[in-house]
């Protein structure tokens, strides 16, 4: 059977629903605790809570739309069911997801996005992506009560050190994947360079125009722009 058919079969949709149910229960329970505490001890009425909810809903719509926009890459490369299982309630944005799938493919001697990616690559992606993301949820389960104290110790009182480690880790991994695509030359090289330049320009533009909400769309637009420029130059 074609691996793409298996990747969009009901079993994977059901796995997504199970995860979504747990995530929604968690969010609903915490929401109830928070609103009850605010009503009893903070003097917050239903009108104030409604205003907070409205603000959060409006803020969430932009990033969720942007996420759906970029998510099409996963729908295309693997399947809608896989996208739902991983992006509905899971640990990882679409970009993290792609890096993890690429890692899984490398592990079994394949390349994600290339014809060599087959059932073995898909099976490896299912294992690697899901298992590696349990690190975050298990970490939260066991270490959340100690976060406040740990934060002070690791940053040695200077939170800028946390930013150094975070940004440098991300740059290291994306430098590898970008350089690997550039090495292929042709449209791949164009797509990487155009995507990078467009992304930097759009993020800067949001700063210059003082419109931080533009940043929600910058990555998606840069991605599609880079892809289309590569297609046009290679046509």
């Amino acid at each position: 059977m074609d691996w793409k058919v298996i990747a969009n079969a009901p079993w994977l949709w059901i796995c997504g629903f199970v995860q979504a149910a747990i995530g929604l229960f968690q969010a609903g329970y915490f929401y109830r605790l928070a609103t009850r505490l605010l009503a009893r001890h903070g003097g917050y009425g239903p009108g104030q809570v409604r205003a907070i909810v409205r603000g959060a809903v409006i803020t969430a719509i932009g990033p969720v739309m942007a996420e759906i926009f970029v998510m099409m890459a996963l729908v295309f490369a693997i399947s809608p069911a896989y996208t739902w299982q991983r992006e509905g309630v899971a640990v990882g944005s679409v970009v993290t997801e792609m890096v993890l799938i690429s890692n899984a493919a490398i592990g079994v001697g394949q390349e994600f996005g290339q014809p060599s990616f087959d059932m073995v690559g898909f099976a490896a992606a299912v294992v690697v992506v899901n298992l590696s993301c349990t690190i975050a949820s298990l970490g939260a389960a066991f270490f959340t009560p100690y976060l406040g104290r740990a934060r002070g110790k690791l940053s040695r009182g200077d939170p800028r050190l946390l930013a150094v480690i975070g940004v440098c880790s991300a740059l290291g991994i994306f430098a590898f994947f970008a350089a690997n695509e550039v090495k292929r030359r042709g449209g791949h090289e164009v797509a990487v360079i155009a995507g990078a330049i467009l992304s930097m320009f759009l993020f800067k533009l949001a700063d210059w125009l003082h419109r931080p909400r533009m940043k929600e769309w910058a990555l998606g637009l840069a991605t599609f722009g880079g892809m289309l420029i590569a297609r046009l130059l290679q046509a």
């Binding site: 890459a73 490369a77 994306f174 970008a178 164009v190 995507g195 930097m200 991605t223 880079g226």
Partner: peptide
């Protein structure tokens, strides 16, 4: 275009985003 160039474009765009935060490391 999606099949061939979407992934490299995503990787370039994310690299660009982080490069802006730390140009000295890029």
């Amino acid at each position: 275009a999606f099949q061939a160039y979407l992934l490299p474009a995503v990787l370039g765009a994310v690299f660009g985003q982080f490069a802006l935060r730390g140009p000295v490391y890029a």
